[in-house]
Design a binder for these strands. Sequence first.
DNA 1: GACACGAGTGTTAACGCTCACAATCGAACC
DNA 2: GGTTCGATTGTGAGCGTTAACACTCGTGTC
Lengths: 343, 343
Amino acid sequence: MGTEDTGTEQRQPVMADVAKLAGVSHQTVSRVLNGAPHVRPDTRDRVLAAIRELDYRPNSAARALVTRRSQTLGVVSFDSTLYGPAAMLDGIERAARSAGYFVSVTSLRSLDGRSVQEAVDRLRDQGVDGVVVIAPQTSAVSAVARISSSVPLVAVGSGNQAQVPMVSVGNRSGAEAATRHLLDLGHRTVHHLAGPANWLESQDREEGWRRTLEHAGVPVPGVERGDWSARSGYRAGLRIAELSDVTAVFCANDQMALGLLCALHETGRSIPGDISVVGFDDIPEAAYFTPPLTTVRQDFGELGRRALELLIEELEGLAHAGTHDFIAPELVLRRSVGPAVRR
Amino acid sequence: MGTEDTGTEQRQPVMADVAKLAGVSHQTVSRVLNGAPHVRPDTRDRVLAAIRELDYRPNSAARALVTRRSQTLGVVSFDSTLYGPAAMLDGIERAARSAGYFVSVTSLRSLDGRSVQEAVDRLRDQGVDGVVVIAPQTSAVSAVARISSSVPLVAVGSGNQAQVPMVSVGNRSGAEAATRHLLDLGHRTVHHLAGPANWLESQDREEGWRRTLEHAGVPVPGVERGDWSARSGYRAGLRIAELSDVTAVFCANDQMALGLLCALHETGRSIPGDISVVGFDDIPEAAYFTPPLTTVRQDFGELGRRALELLIEELEGLAHAGTHDFIAPELVLRRSVGPAVRR
DNA sequence: GACACGAGTGTTAACGCTCACAATCGAACC
DNA sequence: GGTTCGATTGTGAGCGTTAACACTCGTGTC
């Protein structure tokens, strides 16, 4: 007892054990592990054999302690139950893994700046090397701007403040394409079912819609507003059904469009006969709505991947506070849209 | 220069800095941080003040190195883009956070045992304290059973092998409730659109359906099979539409039910007039399908929470390899189901 | 044949924290 | 009035890794 191992006690092997077995110093083991130059091939082989034999795993905490790198990235997400955030998270995780990073998630329940602050702090305390924030509310973005100094950070979403590197979909151009498409089909104007007012994506999509109508010189109807959920879309749909002059609605996301369709069916409208509907996102289910939904496709996976790319560039010192990447969305035509019936 | 700090160089404060400022030893600082007893209140206050003044953050890598605990849990998920896994992940993350743990995710692309093995290894190398596997394929579960020795692990999903603690929804009972409901409405039999054959959840739901039919002594039609996606449900729907005697279909998830509804509409069936449809999961959109979908509700968030609870119990030594928690699902009635039209 | 040089390897010192144990101090006790 | 005991605090030794530097050889060079 005392110093000597009883043998039955199965301690995890450490670098020194590998070194002893291979007949080298621990530093040489470290060199092999980290691919350092100037290690003779047969030495390397002996070390590798020892590693295999002992099933040695480097201790990441020890490594992190001395290198000051955890090889872990943090992701702050708003509601990872929604398709968009979930898909982005997925893209980020894949990209991170192939770049050799782990991903630690934190999902926010409330969208105020303080929550974002807390989440980022928490992640930082854990020692992440960088953070991606998927929280496209105005309040979140300004909070993020305040934090950014303490840890490398990238925002994904939307917005014009470029105090933080960020990547986003061309929300405005997508909304423009959708609206223009409807006008081109002869609709006198296009109604809009917007997302929550404090989300940047809502704002941008609404702005794209509004701008297109103004450019075309047609009347701009009042905006209906939902909270992204199908439920809120349904409620808005009931309100819209009471208006008599609606022939086309552009919804800020597909879930709300689904709710809208449901409400319109219930109130006896035919789609696209009476009313044309366009969504945003192109969730996988959109093609199977009744009728299949014309929508603006976002490549969420790509979005996540780009965000991660940006973050890694930032980590490697290619700093650039003002970077703002855009990903172009694409209008996908399906049967929920038809020409206006002119009376 | 050399050893002395120039002052401009902003080194992160460490415990020793706090100790010096508070006029105590580093050990006392550690005591305050960890809530150890026997620290005089005014000493504690001085330490806390020093911590605040320096904005000191404990270094988690150093702590992890010595305690051999990272306060991080790993989650292996199959396709976190699907609603189910995403919602479970969300539940797990919330529960983990309130228990003081971080969550590191890895999402699998392929479902073979080797991928699961790799993912768990990766997480283990990172030093997670435990792992939750959301990967309810037969292959994954057997793989998991093999690994389990190396790190505390909990599986969430389904299955009967109880070599690993696990928590799952009562898939069989949910399927039974759905099928029985349809039979009670006078349908001569119920067709089934199943999920992938190698998923435990598919198997259990199919078994529940089959058993109910057999018990009732009605004919058991051949199974259609999809891959959980709306697309596959659509395809299956086209095949089902060619059969003449179908009046009721039980789908293994809501997305496939959506695709099925789409195909049935296209082929001129009325729902529930000609055919009744039931789904499984109760995704938030299901209430707004055309028509609103009768389905079996799973509480994914609760599932994630329970899984985490189990894992933490395991971590704290309350070991129990054979534990298997069930969460009861609930049939939610909506308009996609109606009485059989007897001819 | 002395010398520089670079490849290959070892030695020692951090990294920032917790743990085990030692030390100190005052009050209570006989 | 010395002793005991518990509350409070300090000291020293690691945890397992990487970084910095020192060392040992051959091999050319002049």
